[in-house]
Write a protein that binds this DNA or RNA. Structure first.
Lengths: 239, 239
DNA sequence: TCAAAAGTGTTCGTCCTACACCCATGA
DNA sequence: TCATGGGTGTAGGACGAACACTTTTGA
């Protein structure tokens, strides 16, 4: 640990990769870009890019998120660091260390390739692979992380528009977890957690064309969920 | 995203920082090194170092862990990526992106500075700060992460020697969480989780000099804890 | 015989689960 | 009037919190 010398070490490129998730038509979708050149030409990949000299990885991720989605304001979107992928061989061209992020957004606006990348598209999570580089693993890690955080945080509202019904909120859980939930119990659980959601007074909306109009809710101030909303026995043990 | 050019971007240094935690004398301790030079000369810092060209961040972290603790075999220790800290100003000398790891180990052997760094020492977690760079935040994030993972994983055994008593396991929880737990209930909870611990047949050990000898247990094969062992109401809400 | 620590039993309340049932709306 | 989805009620069981109690050791 003698004095730093900018050339005492092999230079690393530092990038960000984004696992941008949303729920469309009852299925989990991810935002992907098609690679035009080698390596992995023609394969789908997570959007991402270099971290610039004057920004943090978080800054870079939000910048890329805005560029790739084409959204004017991404400041309210949930963006969370997933982890860093640093295998020496993950990019055959050179040493690239990538900080991966998961981003969650509500109703999916069709993206336009406003940024430097090729056209980005929403593809169903199931059957999206195989992706370029180690992006299959990053995307799977993002799914796993989000699924786990639904249990003990109020994250689910990040998938919903500003005003949503409890049925839509439940669909978030069911889609990410891939399981069905009991509606009455889900409803009670959510409403019993102070600050998870708050009702929009007097508002209601029809959902499936038919049926009773559903009351509308907004995300509340709470971030954690005590007690947690556990997904039905992932593994075959107790309870 | 034209072809990569090794000089098209500002070079980044990539390092690892380690939050090495243990429990000594009923208190959480962290392994720290004293800085000899500016910046932050004389301050304590987390051990760490550069990621080498041919290794991943995980490789580098385990290598540093061996060097700093002086342990011959660190392959069994719990080592987990915490996150990446990439604020452009976090190191005044140059752009350093650091991948932080949390490591957990049982009974603390006094480290010798076998590596390149100055003597590393175990300091109590409480009152360790202020540390150099953003290491206060990294260390706090490690504590928070470990505390949270105790709830829903079998991580606590990583703080224990190969054979331990349930009382010692309970001390891990109480020390990390800073709360007292009911012994009978803790015991039942742990034993009711298949694969959390398995009893060493016939073995027993005196703990406090007095009292009934405690049965010894080994870590089991399970990694997750269903249902979770929640810490007593962190925040003042439901239940 | 006392203190200390391990280990067992029991009670009581709360939460979760599972259903059955009613309400409002469009076709 | 029927299908569809929102919303309420309720009985039973599992689980956790609290605490009394027994057991085994060293002093």
């Amino acid at each position: 640990m003698q004095g730093y010398d900018k050339h005492a070490f092999e230079p690393f490129a530092v990038t960000v990769d984004l696992a941008v998730l949303t729920i469309r038509a009852g299925a989990l979708h991810a935002l992907l870009v098609e690679r035009g050149q080698e390596p992995y030409a023609g394969r789908w990949a997570l959007p991402g890019g270099f971290v610039r000299p004057d920004e943090s990885a978080e800054d870079a991720a939000r910048r890329e998120l805005a560029e790739e989605t084409g959204l004017a304001d991404v400041s309210g979107l949930h963006l969370e660091q997933l982890g860093t992928y640093s295998d020496p061989d993950r990019d055959p061209r050179m040493r690239v260390v990538s900080v991966a992020f998961a981003a969650l957004l509500p109703d999916p606006p069709e993206p336009h390739g406003g940024g430097d990348a090729a056209q980005a598209r929403w593809l169903p999570y199931a059957g999206a692979g195989p992706l370029a580089f180690d992006h299959d693993r990053i995307l799977a890690d993002a799914h796993e992380r989000v699924g786990a955080k639904l249990e003990y945080t109020c994250l689910a509202t990040a998938f919903c528009p500003p005003e949503f019904t409890l049925g839509e909120l439940q669909q978030v859980y069911e889609t990410v977890w891939g399981t069905a939930l009991d509606r009455p119990n889900f409803r009670r659980k959510v409403l019993a957690t102070p600050g998870f959601v708050e009702q929009v007074p007097g508002a209601a909306r029809l959902t499936g064309g038919r049926g009773k109009p559903a009351a509308l809710y907004r995300a509340g101030g709470a971030t954690t969920l005590h007690p947690p909303l556990l997904r039905p026995t992932t593994e075959g043990l107790s309870s």
